[in-house]
């Protein structure tokens, strides 16, 4: 229903405007703070008129935190997570929707359960596995006594070790497998008419061919939406990168922002911290703006 009265129009616009101010105000304050010098930013209250040191602060933040490589790390991680997620979700949903095999429901529920076990809950075991990917297998060998047996027979002590700490795979892989993407795809695949599947079968296309030629092109908007969300989500990850990157070479931009935040006893350089924040905020913003059209379409309407 569409109501058109001047008063209602005014009120709705007022509400929209208030919402906009509420959302944008912190951002504006960050931008203003980033343009002050050390003295002005620590004035109480801080002047809400922009200062003149914006570019100097940006430059300082960039060099102090060495943001160039860190942004690249963040980008690799976020893009890797987004891409991995899109691929894994599409494949798992394809399997769940289009194939009848024993244990299908069980697998569906396994995937569902991961919704209730986010990374933060299982961070200790996940860390243990990433520290040595082969540790579960080692444990199996140890518990079953096979290690002992092999050692007795061949004299070789079995000790498998393959660590992913301080690597891109370590950053990306544990973040890829979650249920949300699978469900988004599942919902979409369920709306694809059965006749389309049958037409493809009559045309001689096998399962994989159907997936690549028909399903994937049809789910382009879904991919864009999921990719965008996952890019942002991965970009903003803090806990996981902080845990597994002990070496500066793989640290991400979001965790390295910490370096810019003044320590106790240090100079209160909040203008530099704010400038750094602005820089780190920029790439996700660009991604959202670029993908916006696709993103919205993928989440609301299914193309008929």
């Amino acid at each position: 229903m569409v109501e058109r009265t001047p008063i209602l129009n005014f009120i709705t616009h007022l509400v929209l405007f208030l919402g906009f101010v509420l959302a944008v105000a912190p951002f504006v304050i960050v931008a203003i703070a980033a343009s002050h010098n050390l003295k002005d930013v620590n004035d109480v209250p801080m002047s809400l008129l922009p200062g003149g040191d914006f570019w100097v602060n940006i430059k300082t933040a960039w060099t102090t935190a060495n943001l160039g490589p860190k942004l690249l790390n963040s980008f690799i991680m976020a893009a890797g997570v987004a891409a991995g997620k899109v691929v894994i979700s599409a494949l798992t949903a394809f399997s769940i929707v289009y194939f009848r095999y024993p244990g299908r429901t069980f697998i569906f529920w396994l995937i569902f359960v991961t919704l209730m076990l986010p990374l933060e809950v299982r961070i200790v075991p996940t860390y243990a596995v990433v520290a040595n990917v082969l540790s579960p297998y080692q444990t199996i060998l140890d518990v079953t006594g096979l290690t002992w047996l092999i050692e007795k027979v061949s004299g070789v002590q079995v000790s498998m070790s393959f660590g992913l700490l301080n690597s891109y795979s370590g950053l990306i892989l544990p973040l890829i497998a979650t249920a949300t993407g699978t469900f988004l795809y599942r919902q979409f695949f369920l709306t694809v008419p059965d006749e389309l599947t049958e037409a493809a079968r009559m045309d001689g296309a096998g399962a994989l061919r159907f997936f690549i030629d028909i399903l994937l092109p049809l789910s382009r908007t879904n991919m864009a939406a999921l990719g965008t969300i996952m890019f942002l989500w991965a970009w903003n990850q803090y806990l996981w990168p902080l845990l597994i990157t002990t070496d500066q070479s793989h640290a991400t931009a979001v965790t390295e922002l910490k370096q810019l935040i003044p320590n106790v006893g240090g100079a209160p350089e909040w203008h530099i911290a704010m400038a750094g924040t602005l820089i780190v905020m920029l790439p996700p913003l660009i991604v959202v703006v670029a993908m916006q059209r696709w993103f919205v379409r993928g989440l609301i309407a299914t193309e008929k």
């Binding site: 006749e195 389309l196 037409a199 493809a200 079968r201 009559m202 001689g204 028909i214």
Partner: peptide, 19 residues
Amino acid sequence: EPRERGCAMVFQNYALYPH
């Protein structure tokens, strides 16, 4: 399999590939 039978089918809702 359908492809090995040499049949072609016209569906009620046409089932054209929309993309």
